[in-house]
């Protein structure tokens, strides 16, 4: 893990009218780090992530992603990040190969690069039998592994994952985390937003957002020690209870 910070956020704020959706949050994420960005529904984590990936303008504060400014260089940010969520996956009515070719094309990869990438993916993930099958016919676990691979096609510096492993079986979920470890090992930064705390346990470091503010940020182990909890779920419940819901 190098010491270079690929995400730098200082006092980042987003207001909707009088409502402070994101309230002056500050944090840094290092290259190759797996960073968990946690919070309840409506805590502001989606709003914050939208600012980081360049699709929402901050009200105030500063942030840079992959070295680019979130106010002025959003196009460069989009070229240098990958994104995967459970809602946005691959096209069900295209084959695996067609999906990869399509998304590769979007990021401006050349035909020969795409072919090379497909070769590597087929070897790594053992796709020989499914490369020309329709994505819609594949089990959920496969779809998620594939859509993660697709988000890495253009070798982004940072990948944003939105609740990546909800609903998959435990074995596939672990294969998925191994893929994430592998990518992080090669220097890709992984930014995971989720409200499933058992997903968060796999991260190197997590931040927990409550009502627009980051209330806690540390390694999962230290948070558990600090709050005398056996898992992150209990940490989260303690933090959330201190604030008034609704």
């Amino acid at each position: 893990m190098s010491e270079e910070n690929v995400i730098k956020v200082v006092e980042l704020t987003k207001k909707f009218g009088a409502f402070l959706a994101v309230d002056a949050i500050s944090f840094e994420v290092k290259a190759g780090e797996i960073f968990g960005f946690l919070g309840a529904n409506g805590a502001g984590k989606t709003t914050a992530m939208k600012m980081l990936i360049g699709i929402s303008k901050p009200s105030s504060g500063e942030a840079s992603v992959a070295g680019f400014d979130v106010y002025t260089q959003t196009e460069l940010i989009k070229k240098n990040i990958g994104y995967m969520s459970q809602k946005f996956a691959l096209y069900d009515d295209l084959t695996v190969r067609e999906n990869i070719t399509f998304f590769g094309g979007i990021y401006g990869l050349s035909r020969s690069t795409i072919k090379e990438k497909i070769k590597v993916l087929v070897a790594d993930l053992k796709l020989e039998n499914i490369i020309d099958q329709l994505v819609g016919a594949l089990p959920l676990g496969w779809k998620q592994k594939l859509s993660f691979s697709v988000s890495l096609l253009h070798d982004p510096k940072i990948v944003f994952l939105d609740e990546p492993t909800g609903g998959v079986d435990p074995i596939t979920r672990r294969q998925f985390w191994e893929m994430i470890y592998h990518a992080a090992d090669k220097g890709t930064t992984i930014f995971v937003t989720t409200h499933y705390m058992d997903e968060a346990e796999y991260c190197d470091r997590v931040s927990i957002m409550v009502n627009g503010k980051i209330e806690a940020m540390d390694r999962p182990k230290r948070l558990k020690e600090q709050y005398e909890a056996s898992n992150l779920n209990e940490v989260f419940l303690q933090l959330a209870r201190n604030s008034n819901p609704e």
Binding site: A40, N41, G166, N233, F236, L237
Partner: peptide, 10 residues
């Protein structure tokens, strides 16, 4: 409890 945050789940 699918899609529900930890507090509401509890």
């Amino acid at each position: 409890t699918t899609g529900v945050d930890p507090v509401s789940r509890k």
